[in-house]
Design a protein around this nucleic acid. Structure first.
Length: 480
RNA sequence: CGGGCCGUGGCGCAGCCUGGCUAGCGCGCUUGCUUGGGGUGCAAGAGGUCCCGGGUUCAAAUCCCGGCGGCCCGACCA
């Protein structure tokens, strides 16, 4: 009767995304606070799953969590020239507090390099104090002009790791270690394949020596920067006077890194796996793996069905939808929209046969299995869903990476992409890291996403714009 | 921040251009019966600051001005 309120992807990808977020009960616009959203329980549970995955890995790599203030003295931002220039347009500033104008305004943190730099200076005196490996889970505010739920909101949740090292080599190792963790979680937990690489100088973090990213491809072929890891060099060390005494007794500035992933990942997750029926969640990030929908028609069926369903649900640690007054059909649609990986049906027929029906969210495949083997079946099905979702996304990524050997080819491909028909591509071409080449791509609303760490192609070649030799092909794409 | 579209019970909309009965419709919600393996049917109900603030008018959801918020495009950015 009531049709799905989800716009098909083929009709309008942006509307589809919005519909999936809303119908999946992931989040909704805050409405009274511009550019902000309410992350609803179904969405927050996904965030918690991601937090656990990252946090476990950070801790295993020796990092500790702590917490810095939300408010940062405005002067701190100004200490690193590039940093302030990069962030000033998007700062929210507190000028009045306690009913009085502040002598020095505070900015609401857009990121915490500066305030952490200040404390690093207090905490670090000797090479023996290094490395410092810390992380904080926090909210940040960036006054964005255009917002989209999860992908870009004024306030968002993230983790920001900050480390200080005695040598550049060690810092760089850290940057890449974190990039590996990001890729690991993206691929093995979120089932979202990514390309690890370094950003071009034009795309790097404000204040960094060099930035690295993982880039994912959404179903419409647009790129999404899903995580970044920065080699800050000694820039912040110098700006905040973070010096330490070396083994040799000399003074040196620390080498710092910073890295972060945000709730944006959830947007990426949605645009990687979901379909026209709604949200699709990989089992490893789903709030719960499955739900049982009991089916009965007569009162004398209801009791036994519910009893068995309850037992199985408790046994498997999955949910039982025992709401009265909702038909099974309505319940199926409900859980489908919310992306629950498997839905099980249990009715009188199953009770008689000792079976249970198990249905996959991703493929819609339905299977009847003996109740005695449902545990194994659930486990193997969840494993298969996780694996198949990754494989499908991986195939899409590979199929939509195309080679271009001249600027003409690059532009021809990008022109099609800008047609907004969801046929986005990652264009792999030799291109020099240069403002001039950036400008050339900008005409097509494309950017260099990154320079892959692993070159899957043909090594060095001539830049399609300047003709100069460059070491490898880069990823060029339109991006969120 | 510029351009476009939009804001009416919980949700989706009609009404607005051309001001005027009691602001309608579908879904949802409540109650009862019914139904139940992919959105069951029938009946009776509840539910409204028409985004906010001004203005014009005898009279404003409707016209005018100013805000706020959302979506899309653009410029800027995780």
């Amino acid at each position: 009767m009531a049709e799905s309120r989800i716009t098909p992807r083929s009709q309008d990808f942006a509307a589809w995304y919005q519909d999936v977020v809303l119908e999946g009960d992931m989040a909704e616009p805050a409405e009274i606070v511009k550019g902000c959203m309410v992350i609803k329980a179904n969405g927050y549970a996904v965030w918690e799953a991601l937090q656990r995955a990252f946090d476990d890995r950070f801790k295993a790599a020796g990092h500790q969590n702590l917490y810095f203030p939300l408010l940062i003295p405005q002067s701190f931002l100004k200490k690193e020239a590039e940093h302030v220039e990069g962030f000033s347009p998007e700062l929210a500033v507190v000028t009045i507090a306690g009913g009085r104008e502040l002598e020095e305004p505070y900015v609401i943190r857009p990121t915490s390099e500066t305030i952490i730099g200040h404390f690093f200076a207090r905490w670090i005196q000797s090479w023996r104090d290094l490395p410092v490996l810390i992380n904080q889970w926090a909210n940040v505010v960036r006054w964005e002009l255009r917002t989209r739920m999860f992908l870009r909101t004024t306030e968002f949740l993230w983790q920001e790791g900050h480390t200080a090292h005695a040598t550049h080599e060690e810092a760089l190792e850290e940057v890449l270690r974190i990039l590996d963790i990001y890729a690991d979680v993206a691929e093995n937990v979120m089932a979202m394949p990514v390309i690890k690489g370094s950003k071009t100088s034009g795309e790097k973090f404000a204040g960094a020596l060099r930035s690295y990213s993982i880039e994912a491809m959404m179903q419409n072929g647009l790129a999404l920067q899903a995580g970044t890891s920065h080699d800050l060099g000694q820039n912040f060390g110098k700006a905040f006077d973070v010096q330490f005494q070396t083994r040799e007794g000399t003074l040196d500035y620390v080498w710092q890194t910073s890295w972060g992933v945000s709730t944006r990942l959830i947007g990426g997750l949605i645009m990687t796996h979901s379909d026209d029926k709604g949200l699709v969640l990989p089992p490893r990030v789903a709030p719960f793996p499955g739900v049982i929908v009991p089916i009965y028609r007569k009162d004398d069926e209801r009791g036994p069905v519910l009893e068995t369903a309850r037992k199985i649900a408790a046994d498997l640690k999955i949910k039982l939808d025992d709401r009265e007054g909702q038909t099974p059909g309505a319940k199926f649609f409900h859980w489908e929209r919310r992306g629950v990986p498997v839905v099980m049906e249990l009715g009188p027929r199953d009770l008689a046969s000792g079976n249970i029906v198990i249905k996959r969210r991703d493929s819609s495949a339905k299977e009847t299995v003996a109740q005695t083997s449902v545990r194994e079946k659930l486990e193997s099905t969840l494993g298969a869903i996780q694996k198949d979702l990754y494989a499908a996304a991986k195939r899409r990524l590979e199929d939509n990476c195309v080679l271009a050997n001249s600027i003409q080819e690059v532009e021809d491909i990008l022109r099609e992409v800008t047609a907004e028909k969801g046929g986005g591509k990652f264009v792999m071409a030799h291109l020099k890291d240069d403002p001039a080449t950036d400008a050339r791509l900008k005409e097509f609303k494309a950017t260099v996403r990154n320079i892959p760490m692993v070159d899957n192609y043909d090594g060095p070649g001539a830049c399609v714009v300047t003709g100069e030799q460059v070491p490898q092909r880069v990823v060029i794409a339109k991006a969120y």
